[in-house]
């Protein structure tokens, strides 16, 4: 039985650059089912990141329809939209984007703080996550003391702690060596098996191969 997580209907994103209107995403039609692992591929500037950001509701389509879990995102108010993405979406970045001032433990804990999760519950959840990613020993270190791969692990742990339905990963292994990349992709595959829907943007064919579906983008269009 198939379950639609989100669907895009002629979704378009244009920006004004000077007097020119530039189309970043051009009439995208896309259905994402629960449990899919999608790899977005395409050269630089093809619109991968913009599509991820729009799906992640950090950015918005300028035209067309976007439905997430049956809710019409395109007609929602900003406030409800951010409520929606905070509830259901986790982000993983190429540059990890950990908070330098916080320890590993605190970085993972922060999303729970913003959700006002109770202290005892928080502790249990963070401990689980540290355990699962095998980074218990590093919980009091600061990001700068970790390798890139370890930082990305923390980034993923932080994205997962809120129990999202969808993970959006923008070049998650772009800054990593091949061994670390492999580990991260294995982890994604594992998470996907456990039921998390994943959309990743990547340049790498081998990374894309971990996905269940590959979508190629060129000049803002699905090809």
């Amino acid at each position: 039985m198939k379950n639609t997580l989100l669907s895009l209907n002629e979704a378009t994103r244009t920006v004004n650059s000077g007097s020119n209107k530039v189309t970043l995403l051009d009439n995208i039609n896309l259905n994402v089912e629960v449990g899919e692992f999608i790899s977005l591929m395409g050269p630089s500037g093809s619109g991968k990141s913009t599509l991820l950001n729009c799906i992640g509701m950090l950015d918005h389509f300028t035209d067309g329809g976007y439905t997430f879990l049956g809710e019409p995102v395109h007609s929602m108010k900003e406030k409800n939209r951010s409520k929606l993405y905070k509830e259901y979406i986790g982000f993983v970045f190429q540059a990890y984007h950990l908070i330098d001032e916080l320890t590993v433990y605190e970085n993972i804990e922060t999303p729970l703080l913003y959700k006002s999760v109770k202290s005892s519950e928080r502790k249990a959840m963070v401990a689980d996550m540290l355990d699962r990613f095998n980074i218990v020993g590093k919980k009091d270190l600061f990001p700068i003391q970790l390798s890139g791969g370890q930082q990305q692990l923390v980034g993923i742990a932080r994205a997962l702690i809120g129990k999202p339905k969808l993970i959006l990963a923008d070049e998650p292994t772009g800054n990593l060596n091949s061994k670390q990349s492999e580990e991260i992709m294995e982890l994604f595959a594992q998470l996907n098996k456990e039921g998390v829907t994943i959309i990743q943007a990547t340049h790498s064919e081998s990374n894309a191969a971990y996905g269940s579906r590959i979508i190629n983008l060129l000049d803002g269009k699905i090809v």
């Binding site: 982000f91 984007h97 950990l98 330098d100 922060t110 999303p111 932080r158 994205a159 809120g162």
Partner: peptide, 10 residues
């Protein structure tokens, strides 16, 4: 830092 915090739910 603020951008990250917003993305992860602040």
């Amino acid at each position: 830092e603020v951008g990250v915090r917003k993305v992860i739910g602040a």
